[in-house]
């Protein structure tokens, strides 16, 4: 008897599609992944829609509308394992910058007819609404980590996704420190590793797209950034990008408002 393949669903909320694109970006592995799982619901890739329940749900995007707020509960109910992918789903994304502003003013700044637009005042992470089994960080996620998480989940082992800092990652790979050697602003000490040490290898400080690592000492870093010549607005803005609403970054950015 043929073994029934586990059903994979990919769900989109408010996002740029870049994280789910990372799955289609696994060019060498995509056909093998399709051997192991059934793409039961993946609108960006297929017209086919197989009904739930789903063995694994990948959720991209943040919750920004009342409809999304409702829909995420439906997704949770149909999913055995729910994995959030990317900074929007894990922290609210760049659109969470509206959490620090007046949303009605934002609507009238972009749209001629504000009355046509329905949006919540805040952009929030999926885990703020439903229990999440695993979070995959990044803006965008790293496809190697995505394959690791999918593989591990399919065989029922813990995925190997490090939660140490990017700073540690640079030291382990022998990357020269851009903050020490060149005085560049860098969020590496407070940011979770996982991107593959990209920015420092391009002579650029980490801009925190993988979000805060556990127990990150943001205030010590902010003090050092001040010594490097960043004014309070620059420090606030540095913490306030793709993971602006992640608690440690949000708190630190507000201190320098």
């Amino acid at each position: 008897m043929a073994h029934k393949k586990p059903k994979l669903a990919v769900w989109k909320f408010s996002s740029c599609d870049g994280c789910q694109l990372s799955l289609l970006g696994c060019e060498d592995e995509l056909l093998d992944v399709a051997e192991q799982v059934e793409f039961a619901y993946f609108l960006e890739a297929t017209r086919a829609k197989v009904s739930g329940p789903y063995d694994i749900s990948l959720v991209e995007g943040s919750i920004t509308t009342a409809e999304e707020e409702e829909r995420i509960h439906q997704v949770r109910k149909q999913s055995k394992v729910l994995i959030t992918i990317g900074a929007c789903a894990t922290a609210g994304g760049i659109q969470a910058l509206k959490n620090f502003a007046d949303v009605d003013e934002f609507i009238s700044a972009v749209y001629a007819h504000p009355e046509y637009i329905k949006t919540l005042s805040k952009s929030t992470a999926i885990a703020d609404h439903v229990p999440v089994d695993l979070e995959l960080r990044g803006c965008p996620i790293n496809k190697v980590q995505l394959l690791e998480v999918l593989g591990a989940t399919l065989v029922g082992r813990k995925p190997n996704v490090p939660n140490h800092s990017q700073c540690m990652e640079c030291k382990m790979s022998g990357q020269v420190c851009v903050m020490v050697a060149k005085g560049q602003a860098c969020l590496g000490p407070v940011t979770q590793a996982g991107c593959g040490t990209i920015c420092p290898t391009f002579d650029r400080g980490c801009y925190g797209c993988f979000g805060p690592k556990e127990l990150s000492n943001t205030s010590a870093l902010a003090a050092r950034l001040g010594e490097l010549g960043l004014d309070s607005k620059q420090r606030s803005d540095l913490f306030r990008t793709f993971n602006a609403a992640a608690e440690p970054f949000a708190k630190e950015s507000v201190k320098h408002d």
Partner: peptide, 22 residues
């Protein structure tokens, strides 16, 4: 029905150098 994300509003007040990444 893609939810609006208000990029043109949230860019205001940011440094010119941040526009490409945002």
């Amino acid at each position: 029905f893609e939810p609006p994300r208000f990029f043109e509003a949230l860019l205001r007040g940011r440094d010119f150098s941040e526009a490409p990444d945002i």
